[in-house]
């Protein structure tokens, strides 16, 4: 029996993405001004298309990272935020910004800080992956707990950095940490992150059956022919790089890596191949939609970052989903 969500859900998700994309191009609100719906010309169109691309890439990358981590750790609570990957990537970029400021040189390139983000996120992954093993075997709960702790440590180091840098830079760092989709995101950053998101999503979809097998024990996956170590390591690598790419473009944006796979699972079920594709669509729709919301809610003093919208709306939505699923399972 096919659930109604499975029949119309995919079409609705694609429609939501298209509506959000159209809104991001057409809707704007100048600071302190009224809401405007217009076809932008010239430079405005360029800026909005860049913001749209950045939002879609960030959403897709975070969603795919969440799918991979949840599959590999057999835990629906796993996400780049909870495992500390996003915080590690953010710490990497902030450290690069702070050190660059101290040296009087930019250590964050035109790609938005992809290298320091990958270094930070990758370091966290190595630590979490290394400490979350027992007798050489991955312990999903152990990984999650280590991730939570490492995430807290990274958060502490980020706060420390904010206190150590000069006042002018501190404001920029705080704004960046809130998660902002910038209209002026550089082409190189978009191409780099877009390429990473595309390859990561394609790998996840292609290796879907192997990731399905990881839902069971390592022994079972091995017995049916999955190269467990290779698949898991590659999945971790992609999860880290995808989260780092998203952070490099927009800073840490909460809940998307957790929420998108859950919404996608409600629509298409748990086969990783279809889950990966649907999560990309939903992740992109959520971030672009949050950015539209951020644009519409501009205040006299500035715009609300998209990361604030995903956190404020995504958190309660996730709790509602969680309770709804629990009720379904109990009934």
């Amino acid at each position: 029996m096919t659930r109604p969500a499975a029949r119309i859900g995919p079409a609705l998700a694609v429609l939501a993405l298209l509506v959000a994309a159209a809104a991001r191009i057409l809707v704007a609100r100048p600071l302190g001004g009224p809401l405007q719906v217009e076809w932008p010309d010239g430079i405005l169109m360029d800026l909005r298309v860049r913001a749209l691309a950045a939002g879609a890439i960030v959403g897709a990358a975070l969603a795919t990272s969440g799918v991979l981590l949840q599959a590999v750790l057999r835990n629906p609570l796993a996400s780049p935020s909870i495992l500390g990957v996003s915080a590690g990537a953010a710490l990497g970029v902030m450290a690069a910004l702070a050190i660059g400021h101290h040296l009087g040189a930019s250590l964050v390139g035109a790609d938005g800080g992809m290298v320091p983000a990958c270094l930070g996120g990758g370091t966290v992954l190595v630590i979490v992956f290394g400490l979350g093993r027992i007798r050489g075997w991955l312990d999903p709960l152990g990984v999650l707990l280590v991730g939570v702790v490492v995430s807290s440590i990274c958060g502490g180091l980020i706060l420390l950095l904010q206190h150590l840098v000069p006042h002018g830079l501190r404001g920029d760092l705080v704004a960046w940490m809130a998660g902002t989709i910038r209209q002026g995101t550089e082409t190189r950053a978009l191409v780099t992150a877009g390429g990473i998101a595309l390859v990561g999503a394609a790998w996840t979809a292609l290796r879907g059956p192997a990731l399905d097998a990881l839902a069971f024990s390592d022994d079972e996956a091995r017995a049916i022919g999955v190269q467990v170590g290779r698949v898991r390591t590659t999945a971790f690598l992609f999860a880290g790089v995808l989260a780092a790419a998203a952070v490099a473009i927009a800073g840490p944006i909460a809940f998307v890596g957790l929420l998108a796979p859950h919404l996608a699972r409600m629509i298409v079920g748990e086969r990783q191949r279809t889950l990966a594709v649907m999560s990309v669509v939903i992740g992109a729709a959520v971030v672009v939609g949050a950015d539209v919301l951020a644009q519409c809610m501009s205040t006299e003093v500035g715009r609300i970052p998209a990361g604030v919208c995903t956190a404020l709306l995504g958190g309660p939505l996730f709790i509602w989903l969680l309770r709804r699923n629990r009720r379904e399972m109990v009934s």
Binding site: A215, S217, E220, R222, A223
Partner: peptide, 18 residues
């Protein structure tokens, strides 16, 4: 390996929706 050995584990706590 898959061609030679098939494995049936002790039932684990797997909550997959597959």
């Amino acid at each position: 390996l898959a061609e030679r050995i098939a494995w049936v584990p002790q039932r684990g706590m797997v909550a997959t929706g597959l």
